[in-house]
Amino acid sequence: MLLEVRNVSRVFGAKTAVDRMSFTLDKPGFLGIIGRSGAGKSTFLRLVNRLTGASGGEIRFRGKNVLALRGAEMRAWQSQCAMIFQQFNLVPRMDVASNVLHGLLNRRSTLATMFSLWSDADIHRALEILDRLGIAEQAAKRAEALSGGQQQRVAIARALMQDPAIILADEPIASLDPMNAQIVMDSLRRIHDEDGRTVIANLHTLDTARRYCDRVIGMRDGRIVFDGRPDQLSAAVAREIYGANEHFSEAATSTSIDVLEPGDAELLPA
């Protein structure tokens, strides 16, 4: 068993953000979590990465309960499950290569990382990963000088630098224009297909989920209300996830990516 989520909850004051969530993942996959804002998707990913503590339950990765880890063990787990954020969370004033090298923070001596002392081999690997994502020529620029789509690819490169078993992507395309959204989602899918890494991505819309995921979990008010294959996402399921408002459910099914015309694909890097 790769990942086992058992009865995981997170309570913030009077609000239950994640309510006894349970599911299992027996082999590496591309999992999408969909739902409205506030459904608990982000809180769940932050629980897995340990950015937030759980109020109860277990998350087992290869049998080990990651919610029980402390100190250095917890940081080692964090470096194994890379996180990608909606706002990229790069260090804006540092160069792209440094930002990618931050994926190694847990694996190199604290002193060396404090003074940005990286070996040539590490720098070479960072450049290779950037090259794979098509942005190697930006390596010496400041992160803040890049476009949103490029910054998100730097964040993916940092995640790959961690050589993670799982990549958690929290609304990775919510701040991006349609073309960049497609580049980022294609990159994530390719990483799953080529490296066999598990990707769990929070997505706003049904359509992105249908297009990229092997399995989709629908959340509403902190609970799982759907868990199945993307082709099982019917209109009735959409209403269940997004609420009774027909109009809203329909709007949620169309994604920003749909806005691309067929011819636009030629503009994308191969």
């Binding site: 990465n49 954020f85 990229f88 969370n89 790069l90 260090v91 931050h102 847990n106 940092r158």
Partner: peptide, 27 residues
Amino acid sequence: KPQEGVVAAGGSRPQAIRIGLMPQIWP
């Protein structure tokens, strides 16, 4: 957010302060 990015990648708190925070305050 930059500090959160560092912590999520397995960085310790001193690393988060040094790498995520200090570049913001230097100027």
